[in-house]
Amino acid sequence: MSAVAEEFITEDGRKIGAVVMEMKNITLKFGGVVAIKDISFDIRQGEIRAIIGPNGAGKSSMLNVISGFYHPQEGEVWYKGARRPTMRPYQVAAQGIARTFQNIALFEGMSVLDNVMTGRLTHMKTNMFQQGLWYGKARAEEIENRQKAEEIIDFLEIQAIRKTPVGRLPYGLKKRVELARALAAEPSILLLDEPMAGMNVEEKEDMSRFILDVNDEFGTTIALIEHDMGVVMDLSDRVVVMDYGKKIGDGTPDEVRNNQNVIDAYLGVAHD
């Protein structure tokens, strides 16, 4: 680990910190299908790290490996300077990694507030008996966490819908509520799986602003998958490019933009 520089200056002149998560030679197979092949990359403290690639490149699988949903056959995940043992997703969440999903995965039957409060689960410690009694510890904890949840709700400007059942909300707002739920966990790394899929320009601008604000105000490290190249190049500090499960590029947006392998993967290459 010591070989890696402690600091890194991005293209925009932003200073980002040391490596917080490192993927080492990850290989993930489903039967005979190799979804991810021998990929290594790192995520630095406080940066916005984009993972891009054509459809089926293995980007979401990569995120699923990070969040403990898939267990790679080969390779290691290093988190905060230690090798992470094989973990279930809820254990990963307890370590401070939160995520959103490509297809919204909110709890439709619950209100926006309850969804955001669910995001704070990893911070709530009272047991079943204290909660059954309610008065005392459970209520104090509930109020304390409600305060945090309300801060997130304010931050993402969804105050007006806090008591609305999620099922009734339009798509764009659902995406925002999902971000709120992930943020409520106060994660050290936030994984966003296509946060802008299916949004119009205005909604994309809003979401981009929120992502930048989150990174700026809370200092949250963000890893995101996105197809909109304009957004990716604008937002991210560094980019990993994947194609057919392999890493074909890694670096700052400018480096990636001028990488011949990346251009070939996106535009196709002449066979002669």
Binding site: F69, Y90, V92, A105, F107, E108, L121, Q131, A185
Partner: peptide
């Protein structure tokens, strides 16, 4: 409270519930 939200999270979407902790 917390337990109720855990239950409802499992009911509504168990995969997301597990990811959230």
């Amino acid at each position: 409270g917390t337990l109720g939200r855990k239950w409802m999270a499992i009911r509504d979407m168990d995969i997301a519930a597990e990811i959230i902790g």
